[in-house]
Simulated scan of single mutants.
Amino acid sequence: MVSPFETDLKWEAFLEFGTRQFFKRKTAIYVQGTMGEGFYYLHQGLVKIVTSTVKGKDRLVNIVVPGQIMGLQSMDQQTHFTTAIAVKNAVVYHFSCKQFLEMLKVRPELLSLLTQTISQKMRILLDAINMKALTSEEQIARLLLNICEDFKNHEVQLSQQELANCVGLTRITVYKILKIWKEEGIIEMRNRTFVIKRQDLLKLPQLTTQTVRTV
């Protein structure tokens, strides 16, 4: 989960080429193993990308925030190897391969943007693999920091349950960790919003047993 690369290109200028779609919270936008055609741009909401293990459990791969794209693996007419699920009600724009070719005629530099995005997704997958070795505290901290970085804001508009759903932990585990962080002045919780007050303490290696106690 890395922050989006800097670009002068604004996807909003190309939304007319896409098809606007709405997905309710907990609804799958695309499903692992199904055939796709094109990619999606997240306009509003929050989406988690998961992959199913051989044991049938979902593992978090990435969190997609507004302004980012997803589902690029189907651009080569292959099946999706991940599932995208709306954490919040989401507005997305779907761009078929044909629509993307039309966009390239207007702005050929979009090809470079697509290449950069594919490279970014590869780094995200590597980051997701490394997440497996992290503790529950470190996973939550990494997720909050990534969302803050993507939104350029220290406020994360998620409920505890939504946060638990994103990282694949129980709500009780998330509640205990957040309670400790609140007592230590690391975060504040205001009406389904987490305010990061001490971002430095959530970064490794600062996030140690001296910062958070075992839950």
Rank of each mutant, 00 (worst) to 15 (best):
Leu178Gly: 03
Arg107Pro: 01
Gln210Asp: 07
Asp76Lys: 08
Gly56Pro: 11
Pro4Glu: 04
Ile172Thr: 14
Cys148Ile: 03
Lys197Val: 11
Val65Cys: 12
Gln116Phe: 08
Lys57Ile: 07
Gly45Tyr: 04
Gln68Asn: 13
Lys10Trp: 04
Val156Gly: 03
Ser159Arg: 09
Ile180Ala: 11
Lys182Met: 09
Val47Leu: 04
Phe14Met: 05
Glu109Thr: 07
Lys203Asn: 06
Ala28Gly: 04
Glu184Trp: 07
Arg192His: 14
Leu144Ser: 01
Gly18Glu: 01
Ser52Asn: 11
Arg59Val: 14
Thr209Phe: 07
Leu113Gln: 08
Arg198Ser: 05
Arg59Gly: 07
Arg123Met: 11
Lys197Asn: 14
Lys203Glu: 12
Ile186Pro: 00
Thr83Tyr: 01
Val92Tyr: 00
Glu102Ser: 15
Phe95Arg: 00
Asn191Ile: 01
Asp150Gly: 09
Ser159His: 06
Leu169Ala: 04
Val61Ile: 15
Gly38Met: 06
Val50Met: 05
Phe81Asp: 13
Gly18Ala: 06
Thr193Glu: 13
Tyr41His: 00
Val156Asn: 03
Leu72Asp: 03
Thr51Ala: 14
Ser52Trp: 02
Lys182Tyr: 12
His154Tyr: 12
Thr117Ile: 14
Ser119Met: 12
Arg171Pro: 03
Lys48Pro: 02
Leu178Pro: 00
Ile118Thr: 11
Trp181Cys: 01
Ile85Gln: 02
Asn146Gln: 09
Gly45Thr: 08
Ile29Ala: 00
Leu60Gln: 05
Asp200Leu: 06
Val65Ser: 12
Cys148Asn: 03
Arg20Glu: 15
Glu149Asp: 10
Gln73Thr: 15
Leu110Cys: 09
Asp127Glu: 14
Tyr41Gly: 00
Ala84Gly: 06
Val2Thr: 02
Thr135Phe: 02
Gly67Val: 06
Gln116Lys: 14
Thr115Trp: 15
Asp150Lys: 14
Met35Ile: 14
His43Ser: 13
Ala128Gly: 10
Phe22Cys: 08
Val47Trp: 02
Met122Thr: 12
Ile129Asn: 13
Met103Phe: 07
Ser3Pro: 10
Gly168Glu: 03
Asp58Ala: 15
Leu163Met: 13
Thr7Cys: 08
Leu126Val: 12
Ile180Phe: 08
Ser52Ile: 07
Pro108Phe: 07
Lys132Gln: 14
